[in-house]
Structures are given as C-alpha cells and as structure tokens.
C-alpha cells in the first residue's frame, strides 16, 4: 500500500496530529514502506479463523457498588495544565 502526502494529512487530522510540511514526504515514504511490508498478511489463509483479543480468555470482573471517599478536586486537578479553582480550562467550544 502506497501512502501519498495527502493521505498523511488526512490520517494526521484523524489522529489530531499536525505533520510539518517538511516532514510529510519522509513520513509518507516511511509509512508506505511499513505498510508494504505489512501487506504480506494478505498471503495468510484466515478463512474461518476467529479474531483474537488479549483479554478474551479472562472473565468479567465486577465489584460491589459501594461508597468511597473521593480524592477531591485538589488531587484530581493537581496535574491540570490550566485550571480555575475546581475546573479545567479549555479553549471555548461553544460559539
């Protein structure tokens, strides 16, 4: 699979990344190279094979619904990049 620089822009937007114009060509080339290698998966006969998921052989874990003390806003917001008292500050999202 060959990836164009336009596709890099599109995927980057989906991933909320901004790829520098000077890097796009190189990124497209590296991604194409990697995906070309990955294309070998097409050679495997997977007819009827079930999808594996790491957690598949585990049981669901449930716990009692019990009241516990909350760590409180000072602990919860301790790492906030920007806060105002007990709130996170983010750019305005309502026009």
């Amino acid at each position: 699979m060959k990836i164009s620089t336009d596709e890099v822009t599109k995927i980057a937007h989906l991933a909320r990344l901004e790829i520098d114009v000077s890097q796009k060509e190189k990124m497209a080339e590296q991604l194409s190279h990697i995906l070309q290698y990955i294309d070998k998966l097409k050679d495997v006969d997977v007819e009827g094979v079930k999808l594996f998921s790491g957690a598949a052989f585990m049981n669901n874990v449930l716990r009692d619904d019990e009241l516990k003390v909350s760590p409180g806003p000072d602990v919860t917001l301790a790492n906030a990049p920007q806060r105002d008292e007990d709130f996170y500050i983010v750019p305005r999202i309502v026009k």
């Binding site: 990836i3 596709e7 890099v8 995927i11 980057a12 989906l14 991933a15 990344l17 990124m27 590296q30 991604l31 990697i34 995906l35 990955i38 998966l41 097409k42 495997v44 997977v46 094979v49 079930k50 999808l51 594996f52 998921s53």
Partner: peptide
C-alpha cells in the same frame, strides 16, 4: 509514526484488511 499507522489501520474501510486480519493471524 505509530499513531499514524494505527489510525490508518483502524480508519473506515481499512479495519477488516488490517486490524481484523492481524487479529486472525494472531490467533
């Protein structure tokens, strides 16, 4: 780079060909 590969492989139209197939190969 890895976020881009993952996003591409999980994006609409490619999921079965990449993640789905890779998970079957994993089995």
């Amino acid at each position: 780079r890895r976020i881009l590969i993952g996003t591409y492989a999980l994006s609409a139209g490619y999921y079965d060909a990449y993640y789905g197939r890779a998970s079957q190969v994993r089995t």
